[in-house]
Design a protein around this nucleic acid. Sequence first.
DNA 1: ATCTGTCCCTGGACGC
DNA 2: TGCGTCCAGGGACAGA
Length: 291
Amino acid sequence: MPELPEVEVTRRRIEPLLIDRRISSVRTTRDSYFFLTRPAALKRNLLGRYTVELERRGKYLLLELDDGKRLMLHLGMTGQLFSQHATSVRLLSASQRSSLSPGEQLCFKPDQHTHLSLGFADRGPKVFFRDVRKFGKVRLLERGQSDPRLDRLGVDALEASGEQLFRLTRRRKAAIKNVLLQQSVIAGIGNIYADEGLFLAGIRPTRRASSLTRRRCEKLVGSLQRVLLRSIESGGCSISDFIAPDGSDGLYQDERHVYGRTGEPCPRCGGLIRRLLLGQRSTHFCPRCQK
DNA sequence: ATCTGTCCCTGGACGC
DNA sequence: TGCGTCCAGGGACAGA
């Protein structure tokens, strides 16, 4: 699922394909709550514009246009932003897959889950935004306009300090894992990296956030950043639907310590990884290593 | 102010 | 093989 590393990998790899090109065609699926800006208005605002810059904020991407307007994107749970020439059979339907001859050049064609397709005046590869579960979002921001979702974001996880986390958790009685998932506290962490970071820091996910000492907060932020950076390096985590814009899978799932490893031995002590529900989210930890 | 539960959505896994 | 049921989860929202 796209969290900070997957969104950052997406940003880095789609940037060369998305920047400095003039949008000449816009195709969308029919209106749904996926579209914070109605499809017709999206088309009207995007057509003919040049793309200038692609920025990440937490799990959001912001595509700046030459007229100062910005396209805000969120990948939700199953969002994929990729090139038409992305080479991944996972993007093909079952029938396309079975009729594929060996060595054939892959060319993705928009399906019912491809909610936004951008074509360019240079006739180069199109860019697609696909999202099966439609938890993703797209919105057009006027010049200078923000969105409450962006305004609410806390400090970016890669820029946070232990001291900041310490201060932000002083009056928090909720479990530390639930607090980590709140984008208004630290932006970018989702279920996988919360579990992984807590494991590396040796902190039980159920621990009351306010009970963490300054030292433990420093350790936790360090562990989180280590995990996030390591995942970016390995191309993100393709445990469910994530693929990079070029179609490649991330490799971080092979390095997971606890997430999705219920009943397997802890990589540190050999005890069994346990799973529990915390705020309706599955949570994985080692009862022996995490206190 | 903070916390908890519910809901949105679809495909895949699983049991019968 | 085929159908029904459950589960995954980011984040908005409502109500405590």
